[in-house]
Design a protein around this nucleic acid. Structure first.
Lengths: 233, 233
DNA sequence: CGCCGGGTGTCCGGCACCGCACATAACAAT
DNA sequence: ATTGTTATGTGCGGTGCCGGACACCCGGCG
């Protein structure tokens, strides 16, 4: 025997929808499985679908050239990738990159726009999330300007942990270096330092947060600032 | 004899309002005169009023400490400072700093919220502007990470020019250094180089853009990227 | 078994920018 | 004119990160 679609989606934005609304919208969505490194949106191209992560995590990168950029926001099951399709012209300005493999719900852009126009509470939830994204991007801009690699790496690990709801995840130094916009070597050195202090354990693509509290102390203030915006916002 | 309130406001967002709507909202607004260096919003404090620049320009700064930060967006008569009061909790996360003295219209935060909820086209205009702000902040994050001071200064001057609709404005190296998040000396040197090339003329607080086209070539790509978002968005 | 390729660690010269300190120049007030 | 203030320009040692090159280490595969 099958199971009923959950009244509450594992994605917090979709969870705003009433069961009836969810059922209606559900017809325009497909569950998809996202793999590490997959690119969902590319700057300058049209946004055809938006993604509501379930177990996956999606990084948003701002680029200064096709292979040079930095992460400005991270989307977990609290959010949506491609929200801009709901307002403004639905051209992407950020690259959406799958940073944690997992599942997500995919919705067509027109459907999002439609739902946003007819459902006030969904609209509000989307706006709130967009605002949190702005705060993230703004803080990242200042952070990139002032803080050293070790602090930024620590912050990034904590954010990833929060989005992933796990202390244990798979990623390479290479991938982290892309996110932080630094050399791979920079990550290697910084991660080595964190490991020596016993804050993390790392080995060939497997990252474990050992002492979250202490890691928080190693990270810059930006972590707490953005986290508080997430909670309140 | 007096003159009638203009049907179209010199602020592009207010201009979205119909004459009737504008007249009604007008009661909750006051024209104000903003002076250089004035702080309109401070992170962590409540947003009581929002500002629609007429001839003034307002910079939005993200801070990593009370006196260390960087500009993440600039608001001229196309926008509004403090838009987040319309959604989310109306706590500021960015410092709003008057960067170009001039006039603006001030509106109470509750009034903004109210207008936003009842007037769909105004709401949409606000969202579009907020999205442009996100693009600005995101691009600035990457720009801060990768580009050198001279290129960033050139970009900043061009953006200021666009917001101010003038080739000629008043500001000191000190102020520019705050915006770019660099030492004053860094600006002095970079500005000196731009002046030697004949792209700008500068003397004791008075900046003139001499060769905008050439300055554009000296600036990083980020300028064009954000500008195109402004135009389309 | 030996090879290969992705992932990791180490080293080095170069440079943009930092913090600090100080010298000069324009303007304003008395 | 004198003096004080604000705005600019210069010089110097230190450093975090860059680009590039290279050696190791592990697992998979022929």
């Amino acid at each position: 025997m099958g199971y009923a679609a959950p009244a509450r989606s594992p994605n917090r934005l979709l969870a705003v929808l009433s069961p009836a609304d969810f059922a209606r919208v559900r017809k325009h969505m497909q569950p998809v499985s996202l793999s590490l490194g997959q690119v969902l949106h590319e700057p300058g191209t049209r946004i055809r679908h938006v993604y509501f992560p379930y177990s996956s995590v999606i990084s948003l990168l701002s680029l200064v050239s096709p292979n040079k950029g930095a992460e400005v926001g991270m989307v977990g099951n609290e959010g949506i990738a491609g929200a801009s399709a709901a307002f403004g012209p639905n051209i992407a300005h950020l690259r959406s990159l799958v940073q944690g493999a997992g599942t997500a719900m995919r919705m067509s852009a027109p459907c999002l726009r439609e739902e946003c126009n007819t459902n006030a509470s969904f609209n509000r939830a989307l706006l709130r999330f967009s605002y949190v994204l702005l705060v993230q991007a703004a803080q990242t801009a200042a952070c990139n300007r002032f803080h050293k690699i070790p602090a930024r790496l620590a912050r990034w690990l904590l954010v990833t942990r929060d989005r992933l709801h796990s202390d244990d995840f798979a990623l390479t130094h290479q991938l982290m270096s892309v996110m932080l916009g630094v050399r791979r070597v920079g990550v290697t050195v910084a991660a080595g330092a964190l490991e020596k202090q016993g804050l993390i354990a790392y080995s060939r693509g497997r990252m474990q947060i050992v002492k979250p509290k202490a890691l928080e102390r190693a990270a810059c203030e930006c972590y707490k600032i953005v986290r508080s915006a997430y909670r309140k916002g």
